[in-house]
Design a protein around this nucleic acid. Sequence first.
DNA 1: AAAATATGTCAACATGGCTGACTTAAAAAC
DNA 2: GTTTTTAAGTCAGCCATGTTGACATATTTT
Lengths: 166, 166
Amino acid sequence: MADLKTPHHPLFLREEELRYSIELMFFAYRDFTAEADTMLASCGLGRAHHRVIYFVGRNPGINVSDLLAILNITKQSLSRVLSHLITDDYICQEQGTTDKRQRLLSLTDKGKTLEHDVTMIQRRRFAQAFKSVSTNDVTGFISVMEAMLDDKTLPLLRRTPMTRMK
Amino acid sequence: MADLKTPHHPLFLREEELRYSIELMFFAYRDFTAEADTMLASCGLGRAHHRVIYFVGRNPGINVSDLLAILNITKQSLSRVLSHLITDDYICQEQGTTDKRQRLLSLTDKGKTLEHDVTMIQRRRFAQAFKSVSTNDVTGFISVMEAMLDDKTLPLLRRTPMTRMK
DNA sequence: AAAATATGTCAACATGGCTGACTTAAAAAC
DNA sequence: GTTTTTAAGTCAGCCATGTTGACATATTTT
């Protein structure tokens, strides 16, 4: 985007564009999470529970260490939500076969249903947003969001066929 | 983006694309806020303080009600961080002229410096991301993020010249 | 004069992070 | 085969930041 640095785009515009992006990030993330939070609250759960359910659903049979690496929280923090989810039968654990110390996590049917319903709310918002813009805009969104990530975050991301197509 | 609905893009791809976007939102927001949080913590402040400093800096002389409308939190929550910021001389208040009940908020020099330094970290991340993609990608990012917003969020956003240019 | 508004305050509670210290069982290393 | 490391879990307490409810004060509006 070299032209942002040319005289055609004076400095104040660049500054404004960056501040505008910061504000978009704040407001979009807030609106993005609000609806799902409401549904979760009606089940007595919070955003942290959804994250666990989401990534366990995405990685069935994941062990605790790997889940911690994705969530980037302490095991004590995870323990609180995870034991809640196990008690309420959203998640089940089974002992690892090659390494019996591991507890491999999977969603129960109840967990799958909840994951689907909550994530559906967020998918719907993206689907509606994508419908209102061009295909080019969607790939632009994805490119920018990927460029925002830390290097160490990249390996945590499941790349889609679409992204690989580019 | 009608073609996502045609047989050329089978359903599973659309689902994957939406889930990928959800994950990008989660990881990008986390990485986006992490650096600034670290700097804030070194001043004994949190993310909530930055939000207040940011929007007061953006709207000098704003009154408390309007600030609450932007932040969308309760006045009790704001009170905690705001009184902290006033005590530590990041923000000053003065009585409104037309309505003496109002407390109009502005940044002190100390507050301006902190706002600049913290926001700079986030601007830098966007600047680096924008540099690595095309101009088209940037406008796509902005279009999608705008389309993600609730209707009631739109009036809270300061539109840039660039967005109006489109 | 009465009602509504802008702001502030006290108290209590929930969520979801954190640290530190310690246990248990299994795997790996010696 | 004993020691060390690792995977997982637990207890206790702290912090930041959100919430509700109840109430006070000053000012503006009706």
